[in-house]
Amino acid sequence: MGSGKTALLERLIPSFTDRGTSLAVITNDLVTREDAERLQRSGLIEPRRVVAVEAGACPHTVIREDPTLNLDAAERLEMRFHPLDLVLLESGGDNLASTFSPELVDYWIFVIDVSGGGDIPRKRGPGVLQADLLVINKADLAPHVGVDLAAMTREARDVRRGRPVIVTNCRTGEAVDDVVDHIVRNVLFDG
C-alpha cells in the first residue's frame, strides 16, 4: 500500500508509448476508481485505454483466487483496441502475501518501498519471494527513514535466490528503464 505502483505505471506508460507499444491499463481498487481516474487525467494515455476493477474485498481475491473480473476487463480492452501488445494490470494495495494467478498475468512485478521498512525482504513474504521482478521504490527516502538501502537490497537478492531486484525512484524516473528492459525482454520478447 502506497509503495508507488501507480507512480511506476506513470513512468512505464510513456516509455512503452515511445517504443510504439500498443498499451492498455487495468487498475484494481477496493471500492473506488481512484487509480484509474488518476491515470485517465494524466494525459499519458488515451483515457479509454484505462479500465478500473473494483474488488469490493481484499485486493488479492480478484488477482489470485478468482481473476474473472480482471480477465473480462482485459478481453474487453483487447476487443476494443486490437491488437494490444501489452496490458499493465495494477493490483490494489495489499500485503506481503499478495500473489497473482498465472491464469491472469504472464509476468509479475512486486513493488515495495524503502519507507515501509528495511526489514521487508527478510520477512520473506510470498510477494517478495515469488514475483518475477521485485522493485524497491523510493530509494531517495532511505536516509530519511533510517534504512540501510544497500543491506535491504542485498537481503532482497539473497531471499529471492537469483530472481531480479531493481531499486527505483519513480518520482524522478531513476532505474525505471531497467524495469522497462525486463518487461521488453521477458514479456514482449524483444532483445
Binding site: 498465472p102 491464469e103 504472464d106 509476468y107 515469488q130 525482454r185 521477458n186 514479456v187 520478447f189
Partner: peptide, 22 residues
C-alpha cells in the same frame, strides 16, 4: 509447477537455446 501454469515465458533449453514460449 508454477512456470508450467504460464502462457508466456522466456527460458532456455538444456542445450542453451534461448526460447520465448507464447
Amino acid at each position: 509447477r508454477r512456470d508450467m501454469l504460464r502462457k508466456r515465458l522466456r527460458t532456455v533449453t538444456d542445450k542453451g537455446t534461448d526460447c520465448a514460449i507464447a
